[in-house]
């Protein structure tokens, strides 16, 4: 299989003449794991079969257009007719046989790819992660490690990871393009997929099943770490908050009703929003849509609706609780204090 890659990749690169980068952070053409790779390879088989057919049929088509023009572009009605052939049974049968053959060529790798991506690999025990989709963020739970995190999952390099996906509300779809194909989060089904990263790095992902107003802003990141680094990361994630002196705003605005800050009194239970225990250690905020900088964090806290229209932190947290029930607004100083605190939660 690796031989194929060596062979095909430069040709595909040559095909990509548009001059635009095809290796964006979510490119399916840069396969960084075995699942993505097998899917990419089956794609290449289909692609080249298509190119071959296109060359032949399209060539004939073009040949006809160039060579069989009516003399002078237009002919009068009494101009002698061309040969009035009605068809050629032998040719038709040939075409049918050739297309069956080509379909066979395409079908075999496709079925192989389906089975490969749909079967857990033998050998190494996969790491299990339960993924839950919310409008519009992701929760990652590691049942074997006791770790819970939101929107950013750490995985070990070189070990298969078994993602079990479920939704808390509407349909979503879990997709890390560089690691492999997607799986819908469907209520009433226990669906799973396995992915594996070959090298350390940050892999971007995004929800691909339309899930409401801010579907566009339901992104995520998967961070692949070397096995030792992963173990260290997991152990750290398990711990409670490092900074146990929260600003008054946290209680005042009842952040803990929805968010978890493990280690704080009353901070264990909030599960409507992402777990914030180690929010400072993440690379992004608001489900992968902004880099995790104090400025972005402040903007997000100041008006979540601006970054992600219709989200429940705004609709239920800000509108219902702040305005309807408590009639208070965050002051600038409180916002800064909150940002400092959250940034400190490494």
């Amino acid at each position: 299989m690796n031989r194929w890659i060596k062979y095909w990749q430069p040709m595909l690169a040559a095909l990509a003449v548009s001059g635009c980068s095809l290796s964006g952070p979510q490119s399916t053409l840069d396969a960084d794991g075995p699942v993505a790779r097998i899917q990419y390879e089956t794609f290449l088989v289909t692609l080249w079969v298509s190119v071959a057919i296109f060359a032949v049929v399209g060539g004939m088509f073009l040949y006809c257009l160039v060579n069989f023009r009516a003399p002078g572009g237009e002919v009068s009605r009494d101009y002698p007719l061309p040969d009035q052939g009605h068809g050629n049974p032998l040719l038709e049968i040939g075409v049918i046989f050739v297309s069956i053959l080509l379909v066979g060529i395409v079908a075999v790798p496709a079925v192989y790819g389906v089975l490969y991506a749909g079967t857990l690999p033998e050998g190494q025990k996969p790491l299990r992660i339960n993924v839950t989709g919310y409008q519009w963020w992701w929760k990652f739970e590691y049942p074997e490690l006791g770790v819970v995190t939101g929107n950013e999952a750490g995985i070990p390099v070189g070990r298969p990871v078994e993602f079990h996906v479920q939704t808390s509300d509407v349909l979503h779809s879990f997709w890390i393009p560089r690691l492999g194909g997607k799986m819908d989060l469907t209520p009433g089904q226990d669906d799973w997929l396995w992915l594996q990263a070959d090298k350390p790095g940050v892999y971007w992902g995004q929800c691909t099943e339309f899930c409401g107003e801010s579907h566009a802003f339901m992104r995520m990141r998967v961070v692949a770490l070397e096995p030792e680094a992963f173990d260290k990361w997991a152990a750290h994630q398990k711990e409670g908050v490092a900074n146990t002196k929260p600003p008054a705003a946290i209680n005042k605005f009842q952040c803990l009703a929805c968010h978890a800050l493990r280690g704080l009194p009353g901070g264990e239970t909030g599960n409507r929003g992402p777990d914030l225990t180690h929010v400072g250690s993440r690379t992004s905020i608001a489900a992968g849509i902004k880099e995790n900088t104090p400025g972005n964090l402040k903007a997000w806290i100041h008006n979540p609706n601006d970054l992600k229209p219709g989200n429940i932190m705004y609709k239920q947290g800000y509108i219902d609780m702040w305005q309807n029930l408590m009639h208070v607004q965050l002051t600038d100083a409180e916002e800064n204090e909150l940002v400092d605190y959250l940034t400190s939660l490494k």
């Binding site: 079990h164 808390s168 509300d169 209520p187 009433g188 226990d190």
Partner: peptide, 11 residues
């Protein structure tokens, strides 16, 4: 009560 509306089926 949108948020209470969770998938009840055991996996």
């Amino acid at each position: 009560a949108l948020l209470e509306w969770k998938n009840q089926r055991p996996s």
